[in-house]
Simulated scan of single mutants.
Amino acid sequence: MENEEDDLTVYDLTRQTTGGYGSSITRPTVEANNFELKPSIIQMIQYQVRFGGSQTEDPNAHLEGFLSICDTIKFNGVSTDAIRLRLLPFSLHGEAAEWLRDLPAGSITTWNGLKDGETLHTAWGRFRKMLRRCPQHGFSSSEQVQIFYNGVDPSVRSMLDAAANGSLYRKTPRVALEIISNMAENSAGWTYIKRE
């Protein structure tokens, strides 16, 4: 019996396809009548906090700068998620932009690392899968902990801190990753209620 992979190139096998067309970001609905992101805001994002995903770039610095700019933008009736998710693609280029395009259509629904009702187990699995898809990411264990921890809902951070007997950041990266992994494994089937 012939293996399906025998017909595919190495390039084809290493590329993640979206299985269809469409943005990986599901943009939240905006009820405001006069909502418009001005070109000057987009240009500011593109010139001040652009991230390409190279090993010499700091993803945490990118996110800090990106959020600093986004947090200065307010519209009545428009959530911070709606603003951030609309501006995120403008902050990425190169490998980082390609990574975003290669995610399945509609897979990003909120700025937080946990989707509504998503378990810690599922979020951790999704995070590990993203790291495996991009083995040249260059994130140290410490950076992986920071990215995951900063991306999850505050209630999940509280659980992780409780499991760490105080603060996850006070543990070594190896121990912190073990705590996250163990909590994720033990939480299979749990659901979380997002607090606004």
Score class of each variant (00 low, 15 high):
174 R>I: 14
132 R>V: 04
110 T>K: 10
188 A>I: 08
167 S>W: 04
47 Y>P: 01
195 R>E: 12
111 W>G: 04
77 G>H: 05
196 E>R: 10
45 I>Q: 13
63 L>D: 01
160 L>G: 10
22 G>P: 02
14 T>N: 11
10 V>W: 09
66 F>S: 03
154 P>D: 02
178 E>L: 15
178 E>G: 12
176 A>H: 09
136 Q>D: 11
35 F>K: 09
171 K>Q: 14
109 T>C: 06
61 A>E: 13
3 N>M: 09
60 N>E: 09
153 D>S: 04
58 D>V: 02
9 T>A: 03
180 I>D: 11
185 E>P: 05
142 S>Q: 11
82 A>V: 03
96 A>Y: 00
67 L>V: 03
140 S>A: 07
185 E>W: 15
57 E>H: 02
182 N>E: 14
41 I>V: 15
47 Y>E: 15
57 E>M: 07
133 R>V: 02
115 K>P: 00
83 I>T: 06
99 W>E: 02
161 D>L: 12
142 S>T: 06
160 L>E: 08
150 N>S: 08
17 T>W: 08
74 K>N: 06
39 P>E: 12
146 Q>G: 00
192 Y>L: 11
113 G>Y: 04
106 G>T: 02
94 G>N: 03
111 W>K: 01
169 Y>M: 12
119 T>Y: 08
147 I>F: 04
162 A>G: 12
63 L>P: 00
127 F>D: 05
30 V>Y: 11
175 V>D: 15
129 K>W: 07
187 S>P: 07
81 D>L: 00
187 S>L: 11
74 K>Q: 08
68 S>Y: 08
79 S>E: 01
146 Q>N: 00
133 R>M: 08
55 Q>Y: 06
65 G>Q: 05
5 E>W: 07
14 T>C: 10
91 S>T: 03
34 N>V: 11
93 H>F: 03
153 D>E: 12
98 E>L: 09
81 D>S: 00
51 F>G: 05
128 R>F: 00
131 L>R: 09
124 W>V: 14
162 A>D: 14
56 T>N: 04
78 V>T: 04
59 P>C: 01
77 G>F: 03
120 L>R: 11
28 P>L: 05
134 C>D: 09
116 D>S: 09
11 Y>G: 08
92 L>A: 03
157 R>D: 05
48 Q>W: 07
64 E>V: 08
177 L>Q: 13
47 Y>H: 15
144 Q>I: 02
29 T>I: 13
56 T>G: 03
175 V>C: 08
5 E>Y: 10
148 F>P: 03
74 K>C: 06
122 T>I: 13
26 T>Y: 07
138 G>I: 04
20 G>D: 05
195 R>W: 10
88 L>P: 00
89 P>C: 01
178 E>W: 13
174 R>L: 14
18 T>Q: 15
58 D>R: 04
8 L>P: 07
71 D>Q: 08
83 I>V: 12
129 K>Q: 12
14 T>M: 13
165 N>G: 14
65 G>C: 01
164 A>W: 13
10 V>P: 00
62 H>N: 02
101 R>E: 10
81 D>P: 01
133 R>T: 07
94 G>W: 01
12 D>S: 09
156 V>D: 05
20 G>C: 10
173 P>Y: 10
179 I>V: 15
187 S>V: 11
112 N>G: 01
17 T>R: 11
69 I>T: 05
28 P>G: 10
101 R>I: 02
25 I>M: 06
118 E>S: 06
130 M>A: 13
94 G>Y: 00
17 T>Y: 12
100 L>E: 02
172 T>W: 12
7 D>L: 12
